[in-house]
Design a protein around this nucleic acid. Structure first.
Length: 561
RNA sequence: GGCGACGUAGCUCAGUUGGUGAGAGCGCCCGACUCAUAAUCGGGAGGUCGACAGUUCGAAUCUGUCCGUCGCUACCA
């Protein structure tokens, strides 16, 4: 089991764990956590332990109109907004124990350089071209206006402050030309239509290769594949990839004139590549990123929410095909949504909890457990504070935390406060341990299929088996009737707990580490028995049950966006 | 409107290519146990698998219609 070649970090498969870039326009909520960050972290932690070379990257997405709109509304600069939320995200990840290899942002020089390189190569390869269109121009501000900077009356519902992209009153999507009495949000003046030029990504170039690629995908989630194929079958449309904004990455060519930037949807996905390069540079091995991006044996798994599917299964793969020589996604196990009391989680609308609010109510591992047990892998999953608390109390604490506590307590009391020797095990004893080892193997199968809820259940079932073993052997009785046998049973239970701990470690990093004193750090995906003689003190419970009544009374409404 | 998905025990959800009497966790009931955070273990009761019609020897699983919920609709990402 302890084959050193499988635990050598340089010997395993290169696995890129690519995680959605949180948009630095506001707080992220528990739906985002369950949708992308938590599953990515669980997957990455497991993959490291089985000996693969994991590179887990993401960063804050800092460009785009929603950020400038918010900055304008608050009378601050976009940088102020971005810095505020980037700092919040970093603090959230730290509290949650998200194990990034690099968490950066799209605001770096490196990202701009990589983006410009992709742009130029795609331009060179003929996949980007220039087209002119009519667009609203603000004569007073002397600039073209993005859709969101135009206001007017909605042609459908007569709402007077509809935006050029959407009417917030009736929810319909709009084109700026649809607005009655349009006006500039910047100066209030009446905009006029003028011809302007933008660069377009010729997505239609990739219809055939993307269709073939999608047809050849195996093991992808049905909703991801259906949705993606639907897009291709409808016909891929070329998309403008520049915008009239000054908050974004500059074009590496100057023939559009000033005031044009590369728009977020084109550059944000490039972050997966630029972050890998940044990681390599920081490591002092600037070419190391190639192991994850150019080696055909490498895997790339993208953890995103379902709202992001087309960007990761169509647009980004299209860009990669057009660029050439870089690996396409191996899998995009997009999650569905977490809803709160039936409504889609939304920090801006006050539905559900922000990550920070969740962490104020629950310990990180408790929150991780409850969300992992309810990951929306196949369908939307409904959550509530009560539901999270219930899972923590009735499942995590009752089954696993209590098991650890009862075993350590008995070992402390009846084995002279130390891990007992291993000899004298019977067939029943070996059977429990074999069960735990089988659970470890099952978890690996499930995690590699990104069935993380099921994998967590497997770990919890293993814990229940150990509880059953204790109930059957009754070591508390043996302590007086047959002390020798009691030591064997408790030593077995301890060994079993050691294995279950490994199985649960991707989900519960903090409580895993809290047991290092007895079991040693978890360094590989195997059941390592604690060394006989290791001191076992009176255990301190890993968790306290949460008081649901108190929790609900304290539950603050989420109002910030 | 178009596209996609969902509607399975009280609650949250599983159910690859249709086939032994429909599952899990939690809750509930009964029992065992008392080492452990009234935790654990065993057993049990709960479902016309949204409705209707059809295909089939046979459908929760395929087809159609309807009802309900939701997401997307390309300048939110």
């Amino acid at each position: 089991m302890a084959d050193p070649t499988t635990t050598d970090p340089r010997a395993g498969t290169a696995v890129l764990v690519a995680v959605a870039w949180p948009y630095a326009s506001g707080s992220r909520h528990l739906g985002h956590l369950a949708g992308a960050y938590l599953p990515a972290d669980v997957y990455a932690r497991h993959q490291r332990l089985v000996g693969n070379r994991v590179l887990m990257v993401s960063g804050s997405d800092v460009h785009g109109t929603p950020i400038t709109v918010r900055a304008d509304a608050e009378g601050v600069t976009p940088v102020d907004i971005v810095d505020r939320y980037h700092a919040e995200f970093v603090a959230d990840w730290d509290r949650l124990g998200i194990s990034w290899d690099l968490y950066t942002s799209t605001g770096t020089e490196n990202h701009a350089a990589v983006t410009q390189d992709l742009f130029l190569r795609l331009l060179e390869n003929g996949h980007i071209d220039r087209r002119s269109s009519e667009q609203y121009f603000d004569p007073e501000a002397d600039r073209f206006l993005p859709d969101r900077y135009i206001e007017g009356t909605c042609p459908h519902c007569d709402y007077a402050e509809a935006r050029g992209d959407q009417c917030e009153d009736c929810g319909r999507t709009l084109d700026p030309e649809d607005l009655v009495d349009p006006r500039s949000k910047i100066t209030g003046s009446i905009p006029e239509l003028r011809a302007t030029e933008h660069f377009y990504l010729r997505l239609s170039d990739f219809t055939e290769p993307l269709g073939e690629w999608l047809d050849s995908r195996e093991g992808w989630r049905r909703h991801v594949l259906n949705f993606s194929k639907g897009w291709v079958e409808e016909g891929l449309q070329d998309r403008a990839i520049t915008r009239d904004l000054d908050w974004g990455i500059e074009l590496p060519v100057d023939d559009l004139g000033p005031g044009k930037r590369i728009y977020v949807w084109f550059e944000a996905v490039i972050g997966y590549l630029s972050a890998a390069k940044e990681w390599a540079q920081r490591r002092g091995e600037p070419e190391a990123w190639r192991d994850w991006w150019e080696d055909p044996e490498a895997r790339a798994v993208y953890f995103i929410g379902k709202d992001n599917i087309p960007f990761h299964t169509i647009i980004w793969p299209g860009m990669l095909i057009g660029y050439g020589g870089l690996n396409l996604p191996t899998d995009v196990p997009a999650n569905q949504y977490v809803t709160f009391k039936g409504g889609k989680a939304s920090a801006s609308r006050g539905v559900g909890l922000t990550i920070g609010e969740g962490l104020d109510l629950f310990q990180a591992d408790a929150l991780r457990y409850a969300l992992a047990a309810a990951l929306p892998e196949q369908s939307d999953t409904d959550l509530s504070v009560e539901e999270i608390g219930r899972r923590v109390n009735e499942e995590l604490v009752a089954t696993w935390v209590n098991l650890v506590n009862r075993v350590l307590s008995m070992v402390h009391k009846t084995c002279d406060g130390a891990v007992p020797e291993r000899d004298g095990r019977t067939g029943d004893d070996e059977a429990v341990l074999a069960g735990v080892d089988a659970a470890l193997a099952t978890v690996t199968d499930q995690v590699e299929r990104v069935e993380l809820r099921a994998a967590l259940r497997t770990g919890m079932d293993a814990a229940a088996e150990v509880n059953a073993y204790l109930n059957a052997t009754e070591p508390w009785k043996l302590a007086t009737s047959d002390p020798g046998r009691a030591r064997v049973v408790l030593g077995t239970a301890l060994a079993a707990v050691a294995g279950v701990r490994v199985a649960l470690s991707p989900y519960l990093p903090f409580s895993t580490e809290a047991l290092d004193d007895v079991f040693g750090p978890v360094e590989s995906w195997e059941r390592v028995e604690p060394a006989p003689g290791t001191p076992v003190g009176k255990p301190v419970p890993l968790f306290t049950k949460v008081d649901l009544d108190e929790l609900l009374a304290d539950e603050a409404p989420a109002t910030d966006g």
